[in-house]
Design a protein around this nucleic acid. Structure first.
Length: 390
DNA sequence: AAGGCGGGGAA
DNA sequence: TTCCCAGCCTT
């Protein structure tokens, strides 16, 4: 196989069916839809780069409906870039009060001061100089360049990645910064050269009103006939986006319990939820404080006070089991949880008097392995073997 | 590459 | 109530 062919396997050729006439038609359909249906917004009155700049900074992480009154007041308070550059910080923060991400307005003022000192008070008109300004990254550079100066520069935000991931069935994880390259290539290959302003703003409006994160209105979409995911009925699978939720810590005490026949107690997890129906040594969730306490053998030497015939095992485990020793710790990270497990080992004095729960049973140590066990449990087994407990 | 930075609207 | 949204700077 040639090197060229392998390359195709690795990198999908999203544009294989997009010849020049099709690209031009796509641009025309989007731009035409925008001209007919564009939202009436105060920063769309003209092509004033200052107004466009202010609006784009405000619109980062902030919805249009929220921004509008802030934008109007901002332009009243600071009619020119110079006015804004010279304003006291207290004043610019007051103008931003309630919008959040306050470094946006501080960075914007630094950029305004740069514009006054280095660019005669006018927003520079080329991509390189625009992107040098504080607080103006790749997205805002593209937005200002295309909307204010009709430069065919992509303005790739979450909306555009969502639209393009559906249009071309792009499976790149849009949560990863590296995925921007894929979308940058696709937008550069398809952006209108004759009206990049309407094209980019059309994408923005499309993402906001039609190609929404949930419940997209595909039947109303002006470019539905170009959409690969709509054709394949996979719209709901795009965009691919990993959630970077921090793994929440959960603390357990695991109770490895042996009866006088040498059997170990295991139990089946509930039929729903995490690790449904898998088996485990009984786990008891404890608070972080409880978990972090000194768990030397002395601290864990519980009294043996048994009235077992009235009790379910592991509900009153501290009373019916004498813990010989703490064994060690096992940790395991799930996508959203991090388990910390204190492993303890004990012996039941008289197992016959214990009332097992429906989902619990005694099994020979050699048989534990034959049950489906979650990873943390196999880690526990390894630990127990290493410590010569079983 | 990953964490920090707010607040609003939808589910 | 919780979940989802997501650009730029800093480290």
């Amino acid at each position: 196989m040639s090197k060229q062919a392998k390359q195709v396997e690795v990198t999908p050729d999203y544009l294989a069916e997009w010849n020049e006439p099709r690209i031009l038609q796509f641009q025309d359909d989007l731009v035409h839809w925008y001209s007919q249906r564009k939202r009436d917004l105060p920063w769309r009155l003209n092509q004033d780069p200052y107004r466009i700049w202010v609006s784009e900074i405000m619109l980062q992480q902030t919805q249009v409906i929220t921004v509008i009154p802030y934008f109007e007041r901002f332009m009243e308070w600071f009619p020119t870039i110079k006015d804004f550059a010279e304003a006291p910080e207290e004043r610019i923060l007051k103008a931003w009060e309630g919008l959040g991400y306050y470094s946006r307005v501080r960075n914007m003022q630094k950029a305004a001061q740069t514009i006054v000192s280095d660019h005669q008070g006018e927003m520079p008109t080329n991509v390189a100089d625009i992107s040098e300004l504080k607080g103006i990254g790749p997205y805002t550079t593209g937005a200002i360049a295309s909307i204010a100066f009709d430069i065919p520069e992509p303005a790739i935000d979450g909306n555009v990645m969502r639209v393009y991931s559906r249009l071309f069935e792009v499976s790149d994880d849009i949560a990863k910064p590296s995925s921007r390259k894929t979308f940058d290539k696709l937008v550069r290959a398809t952006i209108s050269q004759t009206d990049p302003s309407s094209f980019n703003q059309g994408l923005m409006d499309l993402g906001a009103t039609i190609c929404k994160p949930t419940s997209p209105l595909c039947e109303e979409c002006p470019v539905r006939e170009y959409c690969a995911s709509l054709a394949k009925n996979t719209v709901g699978q795009y965009p691919v986006k990993s959630k970077k939720v921090k793994a929440r810590p959960v603390y357990y005490q695991a109770q490895v319990i042996r009866n006088q026949k040498g059997e170990l107690l295991i139990e089946q997890r509930p039929s729903e939820g995490l690790l449904a129906n898998l088996w485990q040594f009984p786990l008891v969730e404890v608070s972080a404080d409880e978990y972090k306490k000194d768990w030397s053998s002395e601290a864990l030497a519980y009294d043996l006070v048994a009235e077992p015939e009235q009790a379910y095992l592991s509900d009153v485990i501290n009373q019916v089991v004498w813990l010989e020793k703490p064994v060690g710790e096992v940790t395991h990270i799930f996508s959203h949880l991090k388990w910390f497990i204190q492993v303890t080992f004990g012996v039941v004095k008289d197992a016959e008097e214990l009332c097992l729960k429906e989902n619990q049973r005694w099994v020979k140590p050699i048989e534990v392995d034959s049950y489906p066990l979650p990873k943390p449990q196999t880690k526990m087994l390894e630990l127990l073997k290493k410590e010569n407990i079983i």
